[in-house]
Each structure stands twice: as C-alpha cells, then as structure tokens.
C-alpha cells in the first residue's frame, strides 16, 4: 500500500515543555492508524501539527508525496487533510444543516463573482452540496434534526455533527481527536461502526484516543505516545505485548502520567 502521510522528526515545544518530540510515522492509504497515549501525551498537539493549526519547531510532514510542513489549515483541507476537534466544535447558534453546509465550503463556494451573482453554476453547486449533505446527515442519524440548533443538541449528537462537518469537506485523510470520549458505551459502538464505514468509502483515518481497548479493536496500527515521544509503534498485538507500553501506559504508568 502506498503511503498517504509521512512525518519525520516532528517536534513542537511550548516554552520549556516538549509537547511533541521527534515523532515519525507513516499512514498507508486506506488504513486506520491509532494515536494513543495518556492525558498530556501530546496527541492533540500532534493532530494540530498535522492539520496546520500550529507550526512545528522541527520535522517534516509529507502528504500524498508532497511536502506540506507548516502549511495553514485551509491549504491542507484543500489537499484533503481534515480534522475534528477534541472539545466538540460546532457553530452552536446555527442549525444542523447550516453547520454541515459550512463544512462543505470547498465544494459549495463557486468563487467570488459566481457567488455574488448567484449564477447557474453557483446554484448547481448548491444543489449538489445539499444532496450530499442530506446523505451525510442521514448517515449520522441527524436528518430529522436538520433544523435543530446545533448548540441545543446532546453531546453525542454534537460530536456526530463535528464529524459531518469534517466529512462535508471530502477528506482523503480524516483525523479524529477523541471521537468517543465522554460517550456512553452504545454510542461509542455506533461511532466505531461509523469510522469503519468512513474507511470503506476510501477515506484514510488517524484516530486519537486514550482508551487502549477501544482503539486496538478499530485500528490497523497504533502509535503510542508518552511525554511527547513515541513509545511504541506497530499492530495492536505488537503494541499490547510491548513491555515499555505495559510498564508506562497500562501498568503503574497510568497513574504517573
């Protein structure tokens, strides 16, 4: 399988704190890669670096064979690198449908002049996007909530909406920051199923979590982070058997983290 994303030596410090230090891994096309580690391990920082939300101090990111280190988020989104946020981010005062449409900016926006004039092309894009959005909302069981205000939805629904917003941008690589944190067991199972279906549609995924059981059932490969550094990397079986992981993460290290 070809490599869709590859990082080498990716590092970022905040003051004296090395939040991510020398991170190197690759994601193959069509794979689900798990990024796992205890609180404060640097998982979100890694996603922020990969999505361009913050810039690295050192290291490289190559996406689809092209160096993309330090590019801004909108540029990366255009290339197909899209992420969700750990603390649910939706447009709280807007309807579910409006949220999804905003996620579809790249497909929806026809350029300044067509948008201003409302040309046929602009209207055709709008129709296409609306169909696509309707399909996405149905997929996430949000179709009957299209006119509901996003901020008034229960937490789990808002998380789903966050994924809809990201998928509306038609990613090639989707990065999910703790998609099941705070969800009840059944809700989490549904999200798991949804993530598998996203992959079936040809989207590659990086999934962040700190629950080893959840993530090892889902992912093809895992990267374990600890204090910003890679502790282990490999298939779930390999990682679960790794003595460093057992010591630092699953064993007493859990408390120490």
């Amino acid at each position: 399988m070809s490599r869709l994303l590859e990082t080498s030596g990716l590092s970022r410090s905040f003051g004296g704190l090395r939040a991510v230090a020398g991170l190197s891994f690759a994601v193959a096309e069509g794979e689900i890669l798990g990024l796992i580690g205890p609180n404060g391990a640097g998982k979100t920082t890694a996603i922020n670096l990969l999505s361009g939300v913050i810039k690295p101090n050192a290291g490289r990111v190559v996406f689809a064979g092209e160096e993309v280190t330090g590019l801004p988020p909108h540029h990366l989104a255009r290339k197909g690198l899209v992420r969700t946020f750990q603390s649910t981010v939706v447009y709280g005062h807007r309807t579910v449908r409006e949220n999804a449409l905003r996620g579809a900016f790249l497909g929806l926006y026809p350029g300044v002049v067509p948008a201003f004039l409302g040309t046929l092309r602009a209207r055709a894009r709008r129709r296409e996007t609306e169909d696509r959005i309707a399909e996405l909302l149905a997929w996430f069981g949000l179709d009957h909530l299209g006119e509901a205000i996003a901020g008034s939805l229960p937490y789990g629904r808002q998380k789903s909406l966050g994924m809809v917003i990201a998928l509306a941008a038609r990613p090639r690589l989707l990065m999910l920051d703790e998609p099941v944190a705070g969800l009840a067991a059944e809700e989490a199972d549904q999200v798991l199923e949804t993530i598998r279906r996203i992959r079936q549609r040809g989207v590659t995924l990086i999934v962040v979590d700190h629950n080893m059981r959840f993530i090892s059932g889902l992912c093809d490969r895992l990267v374990v982070l600890h204090h910003g550094q890679e502790l282990a990397q490999g298939t779930p079986q390999q990682v679960l058997a790794d003595s460093a992981v057992i010591a630092a993460y699953l064993g007493r290290g859990h408390g120490a983290a």
């Binding site: 909108h74 989104a77 255009r78 899209v82 946020f85 905003r102 900016f105 602009a122 941008a169």
Partner: peptide, 26 residues
Amino acid sequence: ILGSEIGRTIDALREAERLAECSGVP
C-alpha cells in the same frame, strides 16, 4: 454579499474561525 455563499462564509469565520479554517476557508 451577505445573502450569498460569501455571507455564509463570513458568518462562519466570525463564529468559529479555527473550524472555518479547517473546512478550507482562507
């Protein structure tokens, strides 16, 4: 301007700049 897709995008970037940027808005 406000009634078009431009307006939708302007509102989006005011309400959640980071989210809009991650949806591809420069």
